[in-house]
């Protein structure tokens, strides 16, 4: 089987592998990142996801999908987990999981919602909440490759405390004239806030996006209403719907399997 340009990862059936938790990073009050060692991990592309499987003592299994937040250049695999209040997996991952624990993982999965520096730009990323995770893998990959691809990130969060990877994103944008980050806070803005303070609308997109004739590569990830709104407005602004790649969140914060 020959791998295509879109899917350079070697074709192989999905198999469960053990993932070992090496570190846990508190990102926001509702979000943690899990840094994992996966034996025999064969690499991934920025934007891909994995399935994880938890097995209870009575044999009950729960499975969820999580985007990979780390770039292919990292040895460890990072998954960023947001709390779903009535969820059965995220509360366990956030409250009970400890360094040294193991769980089942398979992947990488999905070659469609993927960007590498080879694909080029300009790159236009739109994130809502923890939808930043797969886009962060793209941004980290871009940074590690010292890429100068003109890049815009429009990132919608509820409050300043909910902005995931804030310090790292600010540091990334500092001293990189080709990277611009526009934050919008939809629920509460701190005093002196200079970013946007509303949900994504047409005017906000028009102000932050590349022009259609620049042929940007567009990736939108977040809750369904945000993705639906942003992709519809981008088409109204003249972007070809086939250039807008979307990834909606399911009811469990992951994708159904």
């Amino acid at each position: 089987m020959t791998a295509t340009k879109d899917a350079p990862a070697p074709a192989r059936r999905l198999e469960w592998q053990p993932a070992l938790v090496r570190d846990i990073v508190v990102e926001t009050p509702r979000v943690k990142s899990l840094l994992l060692d996966v034996t025999g991990w064969r690499g991934h592309l920025p934007g891909q996801h994995v399935d994880i499987r938890l097995t209870a003592e009575d044999g009950y299994q729960a499975q969820r999908s999580y985007s990979i937040a780390s770039p292919p250049e990292d040895d460890r695999l990072t998954l960023t987990v947001e709390r779903v209040d009535d969820g059965e997996v995220s509360p366990y991952l956030l409250d009970n999981l400890r360094i040294g624990d193991r769980f089942g993982l398979r992947g990488p999965i999905g070659g469609y919602f993927v960007w590498t520096t080879d694909i080029g730009g300009p790159l236009y990323l739109i994130a809502g909440g923890s939808g930043i995770a797969p886009l962060m893998a793209m941004l980290r990959h871009r940074r590690r490759q010292n890429s100068r691809v003109p890049t815009l990130l429009l990132y919608s969060s509820r409050t300043l405390d909910d902005v995931i990877y804030k310090g790292e994103l600010d540091a990334m944008a500092d001293g990189d004239p080709n990277l611009r980050i526009a934050n919008t806070l939809t629920r509460k803005q701190p005093t002196g806030w200079t970013g946007y303070g509303r949900r994504i609308d047409k005017e906000l997109l028009a102000e932050t996006s590349f022009l259609p004739r620049q042929n940007p590569k567009i990736f939108v990830c977040g809750p369904t209403p945000l993705v639906e709104t942003a992709s519809r407005l981008l088409v109204e602004l003249g972007h070809d719907s086939l250039t807008v790649k979307t990834e909606r969140f399911g009811p469990t914060g992951g994708q159904p399997t």
């Binding site: 999965i109 399911g250 994708q255």
Partner: peptide
């Protein structure tokens, strides 16, 4: 969701 979610 998106077709991408059917990947697994």
């Amino acid at each position: 969701l998106d077709g991408n979610a059917a990947a697994s």
